[in-house]
Design a protein around this nucleic acid. Sequence first.
DNA 1: TCTGCTACTGTACGGTGGTTCAATAAGTTG
DNA 2: CAACTTATTGAACCACCGTACAGTAGCAGA
Lengths: 219, 219
Amino acid sequence: MAGPAKARRRQAAPVRREQLIRATIDELAKRGYADLTLADVAERAGLSRGIVNFHFDSKRKLLVETLRFMADEYAEFWHQALERAGLAPAERLWALVAADFDAEVCNRRKIAAWCAFWGEAKSRPIYREICGERDLIHSDTLRGLCRELVAEGGYEHDPDRVAEGLDALLEGLWLHLLFQSGTTTRETLYATAVEHLTIVFPEHFTPAGVLRRAGPPQT
Amino acid sequence: MAGPAKARRRQAAPVRREQLIRATIDELAKRGYADLTLADVAERAGLSRGIVNFHFDSKRKLLVETLRFMADEYAEFWHQALERAGLAPAERLWALVAADFDAEVCNRRKIAAWCAFWGEAKSRPIYREICGERDLIHSDTLRGLCRELVAEGGYEHDPDRVAEGLDALLEGLWLHLLFQSGTTTRETLYATAVEHLTIVFPEHFTPAGVLRRAGPPQT
DNA sequence: TCTGCTACTGTACGGTGGTTCAATAAGTTG
DNA sequence: CAACTTATTGAACCACCGTACAGTAGCAGA
């Protein structure tokens, strides 16, 4: 009965799994979550229809693994940015914000896929769990840096509120790339984030970058 | 063949349409976009299975009308808030921000429904069109107010960047209500937005509200 | 009460798409 | 070159759900 027409090169399971995950992200960005079919994913990967169930058992698991992949990738990206940055909190915060607007993570394909998952996250605990845990680390890091800057610069801000605001602003700017895609570029969004930093922490940041010597508040 | 068991009170078409739209929002918040079925919507409304196709022709049109309903409702809400506010730009911006955190619009049910549509918006031009047009008016209003405040207060900010940042921050805070639903309340988010306003426009705002006499910059 | 219109019901149909599985090819080991 | 393992195929199956539609009931006007 079954007569495979074309003979494909076999690949180790992990290779195929990642290939299928990437195809899934592509299709999520193109068709959206609701219209995603396994046939589309398989075709995008250049493989046959049954391939996804072979490697992932079910559509549900494929999507969970895809989200996990994206979350891991993002987490590793900003962790590496932090490692490359200096020790001064101002430099670290600057690096963290800059990382969010790197083309590696801040592009339509990835953000569209993120947004597809967010749209379903409220009704699927497993998605919230995957995002939530890592988001917590990210916002904790932001909060820690904001606290240090506030103490260092003698600002009168509530550091936790500032951190939450910055976090929200970064997410909101990502969304802008999706919706005002015609008029907005990554560079514009980054400039907005930088403007925000210079307003909130004027002792530490200028549009050109981090101030070398952020002295104590002049009193 | 067909034997309707229970006899229901007839209603005028517009009444039933709105009832079905509200049921759709409920189901979007509960199950998400991808798992939404017309049977669920009908059952939630307490009506029979064929009712949606009778009033909306198709699932596609029901969803479009639902999004339009939400967009109209939100637009009217903040327009009314602006009308009730005074003439001073500071008062108007304050009112606009406060409106975003009113329980009428800032609650899990509505935001979950919004987020469901955002997740699909990238792949459906009709959704982008409906949101986009109204978002444009909203962000234009924000931009106008920010320009006035910057001029009035002698700030050195780029008003357009500040407006975009504020817009992003407001959207991002909405999302936080969905994702950190356990730890975050509407009041906390509002406090964060207020903190942001007081930092960006210290000549105009304090945590307590709008400064009555926002004088020119003291030089 | 008759007539007719409009709202509404519920079954049935048909397509779509996830899942299963037997068959088979590609490597791998001995 | 067997014998075996693992990856891959593609067709068949089946459940689900949107849609169509024939039938029915409420209600208004005469």
